[in-house]
Design a protein around this nucleic acid. Sequence first.
DNA 1: GTTCCACATGGTACCGATTTCAGTATATCA
DNA 2: TGATATACTGAAATCGGTACCATGTGGAAC
Lengths: 344, 344
Amino acid sequence: MLRQSQATIRDVARLAGVAPATVSRVLNRSGYVSERTRARVEEAIAQLGYVPNRLASSLRFKRTGTIGLVLSDVTNPFWTTVARGVEDAASDHGFNVILCNTDESEQEQERYITVLLQKQVDGILLVPVRSAPKPVEQIQNQGVAVVVLDRRVPNARVDVVRCDSFGGAYRLVRLLLTLGHRRIAALGGPEGVSTADDRVAGYRQALAEVGLDRSAELIFRGPFTQACGYEMAQRALTLEPRPTAIFAANNFIAIGALKALRDAGVRVPEDMAVVTFDDLPEGLVVEPFLTAAAQPAYEMGQQATELLLARLAGRGGPKPQDIVLPTEVIVRRSSGTALARSGA
Amino acid sequence: MLRQSQATIRDVARLAGVAPATVSRVLNRSGYVSERTRARVEEAIAQLGYVPNRLASSLRFKRTGTIGLVLSDVTNPFWTTVARGVEDAASDHGFNVILCNTDESEQEQERYITVLLQKQVDGILLVPVRSAPKPVEQIQNQGVAVVVLDRRVPNARVDVVRCDSFGGAYRLVRLLLTLGHRRIAALGGPEGVSTADDRVAGYRQALAEVGLDRSAELIFRGPFTQACGYEMAQRALTLEPRPTAIFAANNFIAIGALKALRDAGVRVPEDMAVVTFDDLPEGLVVEPFLTAAAQPAYEMGQQATELLLARLAGRGGPKPQDIVLPTEVIVRRSSGTALARSGA
DNA sequence: GTTCCACATGGTACCGATTTCAGTATATCA
DNA sequence: TGATATACTGAAATCGGTACCATGTGGAAC
């Protein structure tokens, strides 16, 4: 049994005393095969432990049954959940997923896209590092289907599946306003990433509606990382007068901010209310604490995959779709209760 | 530019006025090509936006540059981190990773292994659902390299990279004993999974050394899930006399247990000390609380990948390796301070 | 008794890149 | 001058599976 190098369809055919074409018919249940022949072929297959080479068939058929998933970092539970939704949906349709982490690097993104195209994936789910349309066009020019996940790409004709960043942020900030907060710091994500921009825009809109739009000093921007959340929160604490609430643009930023507040001896929510985009999966937290705008991450992955596979099947209409899933604001302790009004 | 169906090496050759073989030489920098020809070919490549078809080359070369990663569930931060280690190491060597979630189902495992073999992956990293050697042999019989991750497979000749489950559990329970605990419940993982079995064995060993080996009623077994942790903790609370400490066999079980304790009004660590296998990534937790045996998950993924790639390169010696990485016990608040002795 | 069709099987040309092998042209050396 | 090496290029076989076409049965219909 050792080192038994792969049996081919020709080996099976020889052993069964038939032509390769007949074996192929048995394998794919296509065309006519008599019962006796089928049995002989199947025995030969079992005897040789034959496993069809999908590379060869893909080369011929021009379909690999594989899609690429290009995202920033599977270490983030949000992306993990998205990836799981993608995998499940793909698996349901007999597709496999090649996973690629860009770490928000355009170079890595470019490299991975090229590799996926070379591997002849049937489609690509892309979380674009920047809003530039180039990567999307690169894929489309090769005749490969692409669906953009999570982020908008303004100047590309492409399907997008994302969540309502603007609305979620808007409602979170509205909540803080309702509770009486007037100085609310925004710890935003990187400029040029649509989710980050949209969340800041939602924040601004909520403030503008109550006549509080001159608050540039309260807005911080930086990568979606814990380290940056920590640092932005520290800087927010030095403002005069000190903000009474913080809006964090994603879960990592929020966790970093909470650590900064803890280290500075600032109590949440007593001294500082905190709300955030992205919930942490229920399974990871003993005592949910953060008031958050939860995104349906799993569904996003699932729907993006369904859309991609529909495109592969030639369905879905001619126009690119922009599917926006709702975000749900979950109120917990970190946002606190109504503020005892003092000024403003 | 639309729908421009893939250019082949022949199209490039035609445009450049050379033979396909020459284009291939340019692409792979193999053999002689004159400067003038190379320039002409490269221009044709750029003009057509030619992307080589790796399927064809893999078929010929019998190497796909792809490895499969079969694990239970990427939603668990432990596996996420492992997956990241795998991806990074693979990427460093120009390999891609196909991700497969088995959800601890043998059927899914079987299905995925078959798919990966058909796709002619160069190697497979397998977190086996059960200890049976069959899946491993199935892979080896096809002449495909395999490294087992995280778990032992007793009756197979195969490389394994795992963590010291026995030692970690042993040291966690020793810690509880040192603090004065004598009734320690074990919330174990599923029987037949080596990590679960080893952790329970470590627990038993620590107890046996202080003459406390008759404690079968204190041992619970079940899947590595939060729901099961919740349920096992509930049952542990009904024991008479009630245990003073809980040893959880992984992070999900621990979280479930903590929820059960909270719901029952049992304070940690005042009323019940808790220790667990698996740490939660620092980035996900604001205030680390659980005393845990942390596994070097990233390194495990990385080293398993390095070993697999070494095997592919024909290195690594003839004998299967069993690489055991150390676990580190991190003492935090959940284990509490020394117990005020009452009985025992 | 021919015609026709469903059933059954084999031969072969692809898919696209690579890699011998063979062949040509130019330079180098005895 | 002839022999030999070096630089360069092309034709064709190959990887394994599949689709298409051709061929060959036997039985039913007319």
